[in-house]
Amino acid sequence: MSSWKDNLRTIEPYVPGEQPDLPDMIKLNTNENPYPPSPKVQEVLDQYDINALRLYPDPNSQHLVDAIAEYNGLNSDQVFVGVGSDDVLAIAFMTFFNSKKPILFPDITYSFYDVWAELFQIPYVQKPLDDHFEFVRSDYYGENGGIVIANPNAPTGVVQELDALRDIIDHNRDVVVIIDEAYVDFSDHSALELIKEYDNVLIVQTYSKSRSLAGMRIGHAMGSAELIAAMNDVRFSYNSYPMTRLSVEIGAAAIRDKAYFEEMRKRVVDTREWTKKELTRLGFTFGDSKTNFIFAKHKTIPGEVFFDELRKKHIFVRRFGNNPRIKDYLRISIGTQKEMEILVQELEKIEKMH
């Protein structure tokens, strides 16, 4: 007798960072922003007419699309919005990766990429980063069905310069190249200018990190009008109202408050640089992170030791213990200056114990 279970699609799911709920915790494991959203967001909440929530939202999320386009110097038809960058990336995978050739992305990168590939039955090949967690450009020169590059990369924090990206794109003019810039606001330079040079490049960004709105789930993509139109066709084929009325208003308000954004960004970057110096003093090694986290490994003490000891103190960091190449690394999100000072103190205690 056949069973309905024979027709299940079984996928090894993405495992998000732990979300503990402890009053005294220091949460440095999911790359959230330690500072509140823009005061303009609070104004939207204070003034919002809840009666509007009985109505469906604008399917085009035009107010938010226009605000993002204006901020980035683009036309509105070059912007796509979704429920966090995960939603945007998933739709991009469905839209652009439909050949029988494998898409390419690194072996150490955002671990949702292979999950989406499996879910949407897209063939893929993971190309190993070198010993310094750098891309091997020539690995991306061969025939393929598309390229995905997280830049800065996660969880390593390493940035590919524009010339390196151009080189990869120039070798892949017949497929779509996605550049996932979830952490770009903490780096020196976005690759956004590349969409003016290439019609096959899609830039994806998020409000979850630099704009302190992980709880609202707002993401966007930017590219040629033709790429964006194709994504909208796919999106409208299964969900015609993706963004809530409230998220549209909050997103538009947040991106227009540039002064507050720059102030909070600077705070995070300044604390990150201070933390780098302290971690170096304690015997950690790491790449030159341009994100709101540091991916660090101690010279002698296993990562599991630090992870477990910090957890006892209700200090949560991220560890990828199932990957032999990076099992001794800790991904440490940048919290407030005070939180990072406490972290360093505890790391110092652990080091002395071992």
Rank of each mutant, 00 (worst) to 15 (best):
A154Y: 13
T156M: 03
I108Q: 04
I108N: 03
L162R: 10
E143T: 13
L104K: 14
Q121P: 01
T156W: 07
Y110G: 00
F135C: 04
F105A: 00
S99Y: 07
K101T: 03
Y113G: 01
F112C: 00
N98Y: 01
G157M: 04
L129H: 08
A117R: 06
N144K: 07
D130E: 13
D139A: 12
P155F: 12
Y140K: 11
A154L: 05
N153T: 09
K100C: 00
D131T: 14
D163S: 11
P106M: 05
Q126I: 05
W116T: 01
L119A: 14
L104I: 06
Q121Y: 08
F133D: 09
H132C: 10
Y141S: 07
V136D: 15
P152Y: 14
G142H: 12
F120W: 06
Y124C: 03
F112V: 05
F120M: 14
D130W: 09
D139N: 14
A154E: 07
P152E: 14
I108P: 06
A154K: 08
K100T: 00
P155I: 08
E134T: 11
D131Y: 11
P155K: 13
L119G: 04
Q121L: 07
K100H: 08
G142Y: 09
I149T: 02
P152L: 13
Y113W: 10
K127R: 15
D114H: 14
V136I: 15
E161K: 11
Y141V: 02
G142E: 14
P128C: 11
E143H: 10
S111W: 02
P155D: 10
I122F: 14
Y124R: 13
S138C: 05
H132N: 15
G157L: 03
P123Y: 04
Y113D: 01
F133G: 07
V136S: 12
E161C: 07
N151W: 07
Y140C: 03
K101L: 12
R137W: 06
T156N: 06
Y141E: 04
P152N: 15
V125P: 00
S138W: 05
R137M: 09
I103A: 02
D114S: 14
L162G: 07
G157F: 09
Y124W: 11
Y110I: 06
D139L: 07
P128S: 13
P152V: 06
V158P: 00
V158N: 07
N144I: 06
S111E: 05
Q126K: 15
I103K: 05
D114I: 01
I122T: 09
H132F: 09
D131A: 13
D114Y: 12
K127Y: 00
N98G: 10
K127C: 02
E134R: 13
S99A: 01
F135H: 10
G157T: 05
P155W: 12
P106Q: 05
Y113P: 00
E134D: 10
N153V: 09
Y110T: 03
I147T: 01
T156C: 08
V148K: 02
T109F: 00
P152R: 15
I149N: 06
W116P: 00
W116N: 11
T156G: 05
V158W: 06
A154C: 08
D139I: 01
V159C: 05
L104A: 02
